[in-house]
Design a protein around this nucleic acid. Structure first.
Length: 587
RNA sequence: GGACCCGUAGCUCAGUUGGAUAGAGCAGCUGCCUUCUAAGCAGCAGGUCGCAGGUUCGAAUCCUGCCGGGUUCGCCA
């Protein structure tokens, strides 16, 4: 179905066109002044500026044409030339009913016929996920849900960090410790053991130790570099050991992402493109796109128009190892071959912006991106209450697993305090606490614009009051409860209708869903969806406190309000699902 | 030092194709639970939008300079 804003814009656009002005001036949007009108059109101001005429006169002419349309209850000109519009309740009701009967709830089809690959999460093999991975995962997941809902064919890829220096550091640390000598015996030709020589817990201890050793001792760093290069060159024992790291890590990552309700279509990573890296590098060398510089093989990407220094992308280090820029390029080749997307979106920390600019320029120069637009959707840092990157009380990196446990415990505490759910099963209580805890985390993260750093204050978010995930779940749960009770009493929801100011406001917000989805896609900005959902829940709460539904004696009015409640629930649940937030049956 | 980002209410944040009286949550103060879940609702109070200029009928938004904070600048990811 056509979005209401689009319908109104077309009507106003036609009015401008009839006056010999560009149709584009007809853009209609929700009013900034709800006390004055439901919608506004500011096009007369821009049109008058372009034509160097009086804006008020332009507005008068356009308004005269709009006034004859029975859709409008009010057409007014205000201030320098704003056109203020109100719809009749009948027009509003008709569109609300259409929305209620639309299976997609008016979702825009901006991505119809288009394919994209979205790259997010990016956890490292052999390292537990920490809060730093939260933003990429949560924002990326919301974007993949949004783009899919808007009609795109989406392929998500976790893009594991599994091929760089950190692998060499692990390998050389394990060699030092003498944990699994068979993997280091160059003469060994038999089968390596099926059982991993290290557990995930071992790796969590070994990795920081290896990293520290390399930092403290240049000789150790050199060993790690050598091991990295040998791994990439295909040394058999190292490859086998790498496979064990991967297997062990996958179990933990699966657990983490499933607890967050995040799904990836592909579990590829840097190592996945190993086989196509060498041919790609050879090809780039042959075509003189890659050249030698200071012992390394690089792709120069600077341009004359650059105002800043643009270092070349390094493909192969002087020691023969490849870097993540190389694997990123090879991954583009792989994605173009497999998915041939229109868009590849990278949801990665903003601090890597320069890196992506280098990679994108290199890809363009090499002509390997097919029809795909390459775009980096960066995000800011999650900080603690001191404004510095989030740490535990003792100053360590907080594991994502522990963070989820903390918010879940807070939710459970609140349930107990409220005395709600005393008669629920232990399983349901745990399920509610989990859903509320995850909602707290995700909403806190998503409601900030992605590029700005934000402060994560567990204490504040755990209050579950005001603009929080649980507030939205609570609003949905209350509607579910009403609908359940209505069903018990034999009251069936009817078509929604507009009578009161509270209903009118709610209708307007419900009908604005496509605008929120379009704007969120355009800005790759889930915070727009958060704002929309919060306002919707607020609008409903007001309606809820103003009209007691089940005790309404007028059966038709009661049915209409049940219908409006059901529609609100459907829209709210849908937006929450776009944010990756689940609604419990009750809470 | 160069480039990029940020500076909005006591706190945390929305708000840029330039538009009407700059919004929300928290904290503070007032009310509202013998009717559908008070994790709620209604209201009050709180800001020279970092500073100074400029463009414009109109600037939190665009331009210039300055102050303050952050990120980044070839062999880590």
């Amino acid at each position: 179905m056509t979005a209401l804003s689009a319908e109104l814009s077309a009507i106003a656009g036609a009015a401008f066109a009839a006056e010999g002005l560009s149709q584009s001036f007809g853009q209609v949007q929700r009013s900034d002044r709800p006390d004055l009108a439901q919608f506004q059109c500011n096009g007369a101001l821009a049109a008058a500026k372009a034509a160097k005429t009086n804006p008020r006169a332009v507005a008068e002419k356009v308004a005269a044409r709009l006034k004859v349309n029975p859709l409008f209850a009010k057409v007014e000109i205000a201030g320098p030339g704003f056109i203020n519009l109100d719809l009749t309740d009948d027009a509003l009701t008709a569109r609300g009913v259409a929305l209620a009967h639309d299976g997609n709830l008016g979702a825009p089809e901006t991505g119809k016929g288009k394919a994209m690959v979205i790259d997010f999460g990016g956890p490292n093999v052999a390292k537990p996920m920490h809060v730093g991975h939260l933003r990429s995962s949560v924002i990326g997941d919301s974007l993949q849900r949004l783009f899919r809902a808007n009609g795109w064919t989406v392929t998500s890829d976790i893009h594991l960090g599994d091929w760089g220096l950190q692998m060499g550091q692990l390998i050389s640390e394990i060699e030092h410790r003498g944990i699994a000598p068979v993997y280091f015996d160059p003469d060994f030709t038999g089968e390596y053991p099926a059982q991993s020589p290290v557990s995930m817990e071992d790796l969590e201890e070994i990795y920081p130790a290896a990293s520290a050793a390399c930092k403290a001792d240049p000789a150790r760093l050199e060993e790690a570099r050598k091991a990295t290069a040998e791994l990439q060159a295909g040394r058999r024992g190292y490859r086998a050991l790498w496979q064990q790291f991967f297997n062990v890590s996958k179990v933990g990552l699966d657990r983490e992402f499933s607890s967050l309700g995040i799904h990836f279509d592909m579990w590829k990573g840097e190592a996945s493109v190993d086989a196509i890296t060498v041919p790609m590098v050879e090809d780039l060398k042959a075509r003189q796109i890659a050249v030698e510089s200071e012992g390394a093989l690089v792709i120069p990407v600077e341009r004359n128009s650059d105002k800043k220094e643009m270092p070349p992308l390094i493909l192969v280090k002087s020691d023969g190892a490849v870097l993540y820029g190389t694997t990123d390029l090879a991954t583009i080749v792989d994605r173009v071959k497999e998915q041939n997307p229109d868009l590849i979106l990278y949801v990665v920390d903003q601090r890597q912006h320069l890196h992506f600019e280098q990679v994108f320029r290199a890809a363009e120069k090499a002509g390997i991106a097919g029809k795909a637009t390459l775009e980096h959707a960066g995000f800011g840092t999650m900080n603690g209450t001191d404004g510095k990157p989030f740490k535990t009380r003792v100053g360590g990196v907080m594991k994502l697993f522990d963070l989820i446990a903390m918010v879940t415990a807070e939710a459970k505490k609140r349930l107990t305090e409220q005395g709600i759910g005393e008669d629920y099963s232990a399983e349901e209580r745990a399920d509610i606490a989990r859903k509320v805890g995850i909602a707290t985390l995700k909403f806190a993260d998503l409601s900030n614009y992605r590029l700005t750093d934000y402060i994560f204050d567990l204490e504040r978010f755990s209050k579950f009051e005001g603009k929080t995930g649980p507030y939205l779940q609570y609003a949905a749960v209350r509607i579910q409860s009403i609908l359940r009770r209505a069903a018990e009493q034999g009251f069936a929801p009817g078509d929604p209708a507009t009578h009161s100011p509270e209903e009118r406001t709610l209708f307007l917000q419900l009908l604005a869903l496509p605008d929120a989805m379009t704007a969120a896609e355009k800005g790759r900005a889930p915070n727009i969806l958060c704002d929309y959902a919060f306002t919707l829940a607020q609008n409903y709460s007001r309606f809820y406190s103003e009209h007691h539904i089940l005790s309404e004696s007028d059966a038709a009015l009661r049915a209409a309000r049940l219908g409006l409640s059901a529609l609100t629930l459907a829209v709210l649940t849908k937006v929450l699902s776009l944010l990756g937030i689940e609604v419990p049956e009750r809470m």
